[in-house]
Nucleic acid binder design. Structure first.
Lengths: 202, 202
DNA sequence: ACAAAGGTATGATATAAATCATAAGTAGTA
DNA sequence: TACTACTTATGATTTATATCATACCTTTGT
């Protein structure tokens, strides 16, 4: 049996820990690939968690409505930066939303498939822990950085992220609005606009 | 066989998923309980991870030296707020330090014991994922709150944390210095001192 | 074509927060 | 005792950042 996931560039999450044959087949059949257009929400904060999702291709933002009521962006992410297991075992509902910033592809699994795999396949459990921890460590590390930076550092870090981690070039169109950068950095929109204007002049 | 952990008030992390007999005995024997005096460092950022640790009793701070070189406090934690697995599978070295704020007790396991348990006991793996995710979600959520709060909100949230989550009373001695609150909130020391003076006057 | 809504832009002003300076209290210690 | 280092404290000043106001541009819908 041939599984198209063998060509997936982030197959490392699952493949190495699954045995050929029954287990692999089960995994393959349970998978649904969904294409998401830019701008569309993939996961809505507060919704019941019914499936396990991860980003296969594209660019997304994680965001949430904070306790104080304002919309806050948690992180921008490419494949490997978003794997949805974090909440699955500690929470019945999503504590954040996910929205596509560019046309994206996600893979969706029925939750029980993943739960069964974790219970029955120790190597897989280990791999899931590793992958999700890496993703959430990165998010936490960036959030902690945001707390102690000046406005220059905050905005520059966002621009650098897209330049160095996403587009690998100087001339690119920002996939996010000034408002979204403000929601991510905790600055006001006007401050972000002013800083980007200033950076552009330099 | 009787294991003293049966009286531990956070035994829920492990006990429910372990079978009586061999597995439980292995777990019990592998455990070392260590008493840590207030002020002493438990884990040092950059050190190789050789064991699995969690806080059984007391109060600790997680902290790190950030990329920009300043000492930053990540979170203050009581039992259940700190379980060290986060980095264990995704990192060879600790990316943060842990220091006791009050006399504390930690439990230490040889790392291989926990790894073996995860591989062989699916229920345990699930429980570990749940516990560590809860701990790191809480830390992330608080960090995200810090990004968009004013200085009043930042300092007030620290004072409220100790009042509502640690001491359950109005009159208590802060277990942290003004400097530590500054390192946690990203504010200057003077600002923190001023705000606490102001809160006290009200 | 037009209006409406939202994004970008910039100036003027007010407020939030850092920095600089100084001093008093407190603990350790020679 | 006196010295040092560290924490808390407060005032004066500067700098960083938010807010308010206005305008232009682009997109969307009618």
């Amino acid at each position: 049996m041939i599984c198209s996931c063998q060509n997936c560039h982030i197959k490392t999450i699952f493949f190495e820990s699954l045995h050929e044959g029954e287990e692999l087949e089960k995994y393959c059949n349970a998978r649904t690939e969904i294409t998401i257009p830019a701008g569309k929400r993939i996961i809505k904060q507060g919704d019941k968690i019914k499936s396990f999702k991860y980003l296969q291709d594209g660019l997304i933002k994680l965001h949430r409505k904070s306790k104080s009521g304002n919309e806050q962006i948690i992180s921008f992410g490419k494949p490997m930066d978003f794997v949805s297991i974090q909440n699955v075992f500690s929470n019945k509902k999503y504590s954040y939303s996910v929205t596509a910033l560019e046309n994206s592809t996600i893979c969706v699994f029925d939750l029980s498939i993943i739960t069964d795999l974790i219970r029955s396949n120790g190597k897989f459990a280990e791999r899931i822990i590793e992958t999700t921890n890496k993703a959430s460590n990165k998010i936490l590390s960036n959030s902690l950085d945001m707390i102690s930076k000046s406005m220059y550092g905050k905005v520059a870090s966002v621009l650098l992220f897209f330049q160095e981690k996403i587009y690998f070039t100087y001339g690119f169109d920002l996939p996010v609005s000034r408002k979204e950068i403000a929601q991510y950095s905790g600055l006001s929109i006007e401050t972000v606009i002013r800083l980007i204007s200033e950076f552009r002049r330099d």
